[in-house]
Write a protein that binds this DNA or RNA. Structure first.
Lengths: 235, 235
DNA sequence: GCAAAAGTGTTGTGTATACACCCATGG
DNA sequence: CCATGGGTGTATACACAACACTTTTGC
């Protein structure tokens, strides 16, 4: 607990602050970890320009809010519109391209058969990822950690499903992310109790077994985005 | 669920990506919300250069990790060494100085009588803050929200106390942050049960009443930093 | 002996977990 | 009629909230 008031010099700070642009500050680059679930696998979207794979990324254009950059990145790189987006973490990184500040986002999306067909090549199983840069690897790893943790106290997994879904599909999404099986009765009880399920009166019949009831997600009761500040990103 | 594959043009993206430096990207600036507790009040540290108050801030110097920038900012602005530091949120902001990306951090510290004396002027009660920029106001508001939420599932408030403390002091810290009174017996039971209290065998006698047992915080059992990625910030 | 803060247990209520069988359908 | 996944209830353990009095000290 020794005194710390040593290097009190705000020289660099002040100087740079007066000429904010064109200084040797870091480049800001936005990267998105976009997840989807298919066949009981948790998949992540990667770009594969020039052989090596990498997270979808881009630089913010002038005065573009970071959230908008993230959404644009996802659109440009996958052609899809994410259903949920949350800022993950910001880190600085030094590599061959110079000095970057990476603002990372996590997105969730349902990639059904249609979209799957046109964009299949970009999806990679999180359990067998291709070679990635160190930064991308860490960002993905952390995104997974946070996504799993968040399943415990939010209903975020709804965003991985189509508008109408069965409880079994919902449970499969949870199990894919968590990597373990859940008890059917307990899962259904909690899902119903959470109050964010709206029971449509439709059913889905497929295969030689009892048809499943279809539900919708009541977005207005979703407490999932409480981690994102209300103002989010304005300019 | 209409098809979204509209603006597939990664023009801007690609172009900017090839000349990352010297472009008109945003300035990156790190701001710290440093909290302390005194007299049952939750206080935040503000700089008051040139009349208007603002959060302590600075620009990262070349290749400096963001966490290091945050720690340096706190040292330079308060002369103190924070006891806990966590990244809060990153937002972009447009103001008179141009286009900035603000990486915000929350720090916790114990500001005892000694430190209080030399730095008293910088501390402001969170319930009566001076006029601040819109960005700073929002960052503080969000920091408070997150700090309160975090008290529910972590033991983060220990970082607001001196090395040895009484359970009553700990409870006061919680109450100052939450803004409501807690039940003494329940509070103590949970604090003990959490396993991060190490009972020193010392007591503190002050005033005409029974002396209080002193405890220490077992940092190695602190699950508080699980929100921060293991790699945190390397370059 | 009294004022002032420290310290201490029990009970009810709600929430999470473990666990096994019948139902509706297609072929 | 059988294979397949859909759907249902109960008992137990644990976590949390409400609640009041005794203890030790300084003066």
């Amino acid at each position: 607990m020794a005194a710390i008031r040593a290097s009190q010099s705000p020289k660099i700070n002040r100087k740079a602050a007066t000429i904010p642009h064109a200084s040797a500050g870091p480049t800001v680059d936005v990267r998105c970890v976009l997840f989807t679930v298919a066949d009981g696998k948790l998949l992540v979207a990667l770009d594969q320009r020039e052989g090596t794979a990498s997270l979808p990324r881009s630089l913010p254009v002038a005065n573009e809010p970071l959230d908008a950059t993230a959404r644009r990145t996802i659109r440009e790189s996958t052609g899809l519109q994410e259903q949920y987006l949350e800022q993950l973490y910001t880190l600085s990184f030094r590599d061959s391209d110079g000095w970057s500040v990476i603002v990372s986002y996590v997105g969730l999306i349902y990639a059904g058969p249609e979209t799957d067909a046109l964009a299949r090549s970009i999806w990679f199983d999180t359990h067998s990822l291709p070679k990635l840069s160190g930064a991308d690897e860490k960002v993905i790893e952390y995104a997974l950690l946070r996504l799993r943790a968040k399943l415990g106290y939010t209903n975020i997994a709804f965003h991985l499903l189509p508008r109408a879904f069965t409880l079994t599909e919902l449970q499969n999404a949870y199990e894919s992310i968590l990597g373990r099986r859940l008890d059917k009765r307990n899962f259904r009880r909690r899902a119903i109790a959470s109050g964010i399920l709206q029971s449509t009166n439709q059913q889905r019949r497929e295969g030689s077994h009892r048809p499943a009831a279809l539900y919708r997600f009541r977005a207005e009761h979703d407490p999932a985005d409480y981690l994102t500040p209300a103002w989010a990103d304005e300019a």
